[in-house]
Amino acid sequence: MQTVIKTKALCKTYGKQAAVDHVELHVPQGCIYGFIGPNGAGKSTTMKMLLGLIHPTAGSVFLLGQKLNENNRLALLRQTGSLIESPSGYLHLTAQENLQIVADLKGVSHKEITRVLEVVHLTADRSRKVGQYSLGMKQRLGIAMALLGNPKLLILDEPTNGLDPAGIQEMRTLLAEMPAATGATILVSSHLLGEMEQLVEQVGIINHGHMLFEGPLRELQRHSRGALTLRLLQPEKALPVLRANGIAAVPRNDTLTLPALRDELAAGLVQSIADSGAGVVELTRHTKSLEEIFLSLTDSKEVH
């Protein structure tokens, strides 16, 4: 599978302050990649370097298999759509008129406008002035502008920023539909970790300019194993088994709470408890949310 975005030791410093420090991104083709971190972590700076809007202090950017440079920048950006910071648009013009201007700038046929309005669910509002749009509608119009020209790559910086819960849900649904609807690979940044968990397949976590984790969401979730709760008919019969395995647990009513264990160890332990006659009724594994994992990572604990 082609890597649509790759960076090598990407750095950006302002004076002595490193905004981005040796960031290495690998965004596979056809996925939704969540670029996650708190405000000020280096997300927007990285995305601006991907688009050639600011020059790296060091390192390289590769887009669509080519190293980004002054000679090929415009050709690569014609295949890339982006929404960085707040969506642009002339408030006194309609969505249709705004899109016509962008289409002319991109050298794209006006026939494209109908398609992108359908993708972002703004067909019924194409003749309304953008000044009458809600923030969520303006964000969707910004994405429609980015989609003109049928780009292979879409780079969206905090597209849910400032939206109310209904707007966030609407944007999440829209983004989830887009790879199938457009064929584009999507890099989307956010500090709303719970929203990303429901949307993305690949994750990159950044804080203070450093990458803390990159990989499939399911790999990150492997590190989310929390405690196990066992509901037993006779909890006291399980205690010798636990002591023999070096595990301390205190019964509470008919339950025992065990620490996070590898699947193989947990399976063997539960089997031994069942064999003891304790009567296993229910087993519940508690998992950390992406937000809890993120907080543990940003506390300088690394995922191995």
Score class of each variant (00 low, 15 high):
His110Glu: 13
Met178Cys: 00
Lys48Ser: 12
His55Ile: 09
Asp157Ile: 06
Ala180Gly: 02
Gln169Thr: 14
Glu170Pro: 02
Arg126Lys: 15
Gly268Val: 03
Ala249Tyr: 02
Thr123Cys: 01
Asp299Lys: 06
Ala58Cys: 07
Leu269Ile: 03
Leu91His: 09
Ala266Leu: 02
Pro159Glu: 03
Gly204Ser: 11
Ala124Arg: 03
Cys11Arg: 15
Ala41Cys: 04
Glu214Arg: 10
Val102Arg: 11
Leu68Tyr: 11
Ala103Tyr: 05
Val188Thr: 00
Leu51Val: 11
Val203Cys: 06
Leu295Cys: 13
Arg243His: 12
Gly167Asp: 03
Val116His: 01
Glu24Arg: 08
Leu76Thr: 10
Phe213Ala: 14
Lys48Cys: 11
Arg128Glu: 09
Ile36Thr: 01
Ile36Ala: 10
Ala238Gly: 02
Gly131Asp: 08
Ala244Lys: 14
Gly149Leu: 04
Ala278Ser: 08
Ala103Pro: 12
Ile206Met: 12
Gly52Trp: 08
Leu10Val: 04
Thr94Cys: 03
Ser276Ile: 00
Arg243Glu: 12
Ala267Arg: 13
Gly37Ala: 06
Lys288Asp: 08
Ser82Lys: 05
Arg243Ser: 08
Ala9Glu: 10
Glu302Asn: 14
Pro151Phe: 01
Leu220Ile: 14
His286Cys: 08
Arg73Trp: 07
Leu77Ile: 14
Gly215Asp: 14
Ile143Tyr: 01
Leu154Tyr: 13
Ile113Tyr: 11
Met196Ser: 01
Thr257His: 04
Leu117Ile: 07
Lys12Asp: 10
Arg262Leu: 10
Ile273Met: 00
Ile273Val: 02
Leu147Phe: 12
Ala9Val: 00
Val130Cys: 02
Ile5Gln: 06
Ala278Asn: 01
His191Ile: 03
Ala248Tyr: 12
Glu219Val: 05
Gln271Cys: 11
Thr182Pro: 11
Leu153Ile: 15
His210Asn: 14
Gln66Lys: 10
Gly37Gln: 07
Ile155Asp: 01
Ala274Met: 03
Lys129His: 13
Lys12Arg: 10
Val281Glu: 15
Ala176Glu: 02
Lys43Asp: 10
Gly89Trp: 04
